[in-house]
Design a binder for these strands. Sequence first.
RNA 1: GCCCGGAUGGCGGAAUGGCAGACGCGGAGGCCUCAAAAGCCUCUACUCGCAAGGGUGUGUGGGUUCGAGUCCCACUCCGGGCACCA
Length: 822
Amino acid sequence: MARPFDVVALEKKWQDRWRSEGTYEVDNDDPRERYYALCMYPYPSGVAHQGHVRNYVFGDLVVRYQTMRGKAVLSPFGFDSFGLPAENAAIKAKSHPRVFTDQRIEELKASVQELGAVYDWRREVRSHDPAYIRNAQYIFLKFLEAGLAYRAEAPVNWCPGCATVLANEQVNADGTCDRSGDVVERKNLEQWFFKITDYADELLEQVDQLQWPERVKTMQRNWIGRSEGVEFDLPFADDPSLALRVFTTRPDTGFGVTYAVVAPEHPLLARLTTSDQQAAVEELVERASHASEVERTATTDNGAELTKRGAFTGSYVVNPFNGERVPVYVADYVLGTYGTGAIMAVPAEDERDFAFAEVHGLPVERTVATPEGFAGGAYADDGIKINSGFMDGLDVAAAKSAALEFLIAQAGGVAKVNYRLRDWLVSRQRFWGCPIPVVYCEVDGIVPVPVSQLPVLAPDDVVMESTGQSPLATHEGFRATTCPTCGGPARREADTMDTFTDSSWYFLRFTDPYSAERPFDPVEAAKWMPVDQYIGGVEHAILHLLYARFYMKALVDVGVAPGLPREPFTRLFTQGMIRMDGSKMSKSKGNLVAPGQYYKTVGADGLRLFHLFVGPPADDFDWTSQTDEVIDGCGRFLDRLWRLANLDDITLRTDDDESDVVVRRAVHKTIAKVSEDFERWSYNTAVAALMELLNLVGKWARDERGAHEATFNEAVDTLLLLLAPMAPHVTAELWEQRHAGGSSLHAQSWPMADPALVADETVTMIVQVNGKVRARLDVPPLISEDEATTLALADGSVQAALDGASPSRVVARPPRMVNIVL
RNA sequence: GCCCGGAUGGCGGAAUGGCAGACGCGGAGGCCUCAAAAGCCUCUACUCGCAAGGGUGUGUGGGUUCGAGUCCCACUCCGGGCACCA
């Protein structure tokens, strides 16, 4: 499209100027009110895609808007530069992941700058930078010292072909390895964990205080999954000195227990299994151990065959409520990693137990009266207790407390809270990550690397093998070391940390990126934390945001961040995804629409305006064949602005007339509207309001009478100010043309609406007869109910609609509406 | 299965319980031009009508209200999250 100006040159001029003048660099001792705006740390995957663009457009708008509101805005940028894609690319190219990563960072950085998004680049942070690694390791050591990091055996996804542990995301739905195609096994291996479960309660409680989307808060609550219940003993029938410990949230259903179940991993399974059941039990355990977690749960997906796999152990336990013997089964629907790994089964009041009981022919004993007409299987809702001895007649809540007391007295019962949340497995058998700073000494065991010896850096002379095994594991130069305690020979830890650890504290490093002795100076960090506005994709609703919240709390507690707020992100905005052909637009799907092509046509300004205008920022957006036309439309809007400001076909006059007040009212109403829309993240309507104003001013100014100069200038300057955070380049250029020698547009204050001009002189009152609009009257805004009614009844078309009938009722809501009811 | 969203013209979308469809895209017609592009102007939910004007209309069915796209109940479909967590 032909533009009335050279868009490429114009945008470059301003981008260069913002960078060379350090317009958006901000110091920690800035006296202005502080504001911390942050977009989520990106993984550097190369040139920015539309998802990035959308994210940074919103972020940049916040930065520029808050700056115009007089605040010192911290707007940093960095790269989450460790991770699997770089490692895989390096394997393919037989090079080092750093080469690939540094290249991608430069590409992403350049395209972010081309978008006109402004940052304080002095504070740039990269996960794979030795200074960052050093501090990430420092934090690990602090966690270790405080007992928040520990090593334990855990069941993991193990690929025999790759000789490595896989993350859940690397396991295909059919239980095979994403890379080699081998069947993934479950294996118990020693791994490093962070004790996030210590913070489960605090993480759950403080969700309430966050100004985050409800959806995200709900997802966090569900992920933590707190549940209150009772743990108690089911004594073995053949040996009352032994017992099966179970957890339940429904102790009130104790009289309905018709069997018990242990997980395939349960330590007492061997003791419970009788010789005649050996074969069946072993077969089930074998199958469970080979199946990944994904595959193990897969059978419930297709509800058609809801087969609950399980086998009788041959043993019985005694139900403490009624003294009855019930059979013990082993089944993979009971997880070894939750509660006690064993349950009491109540098919009448639990759906899963009911399904299992049906398959295995086990009895169903109801303990809650079902409502009339109830036809289904399990009934899990409230009701009156039946068949339950001392609980009969109680409701479920009362029966729960009675049952708890009973179990405490009779069966080693104890009230217990369980969480779905597990400790965070942070070790990865990967090369391209932050090495875990410990060594293994035959004499001293696990020994932390002293802080003075940090960072522990991976060697450069490695060969990335397609086996997938980390070269760290076999690199003698790296692994062979001496014990810091005894000086004897020792082996370095070969595992690296989950990359989510890097993104869990980068926002703190931004506040003090120069600190060498520690991750950040808490005094400097306190000047900016917490982040006022965090912006990112909803795909990080659980993991990243939960881990970062955990880190913040833990850093305060271990003394790295004393006195800092315990929640890192006050407000969170999650922008919608961009989809194409129904699926997420992403590099891996190969359906990217590169932003670069638009910089030459509508410019970064046009593309930014498009992303703001196309719909509510939180909603997903479908990129279609029509989208380019909408983008062109945004470019045309900027062209019209350019021509208006350049007096294209406009003559100015010095005297005013009655039309001035109409324009001035529109200008001030738009200031009020756009300001309000900015605060509530309704950018699409803000753009619409600005388009409307431009249309109105354009028509007025091109009238044959000409435009009154003062009013015209006010209107155009206001348009430029309001558009500055959205389309920063072209507005800055026009402002410079109009105010030669003055300070730049982006140094101006956000305009204030004049309340006298925002208030309406007259409003349109609608008159309804039986709820149907029959007339529209111009009335003063302060009209009384009586006056409104009188005016309404006097109107000709209202009289016609009444047709002589007399109203039974008149509802007057002056000045908006009068409804005459017959 | 559970939880959370959503459903409005040809399309993206707008609308504190008070004029449904702002704004934009697309479409139609016109102006300008030798012609085109660009630009500008008018129209554009459906329907009856020559017109003035009328009727219908926000996924479906009920309800609350003087008045419902908006609130309540039930349902259908679409999207997302969690998924045997006892």
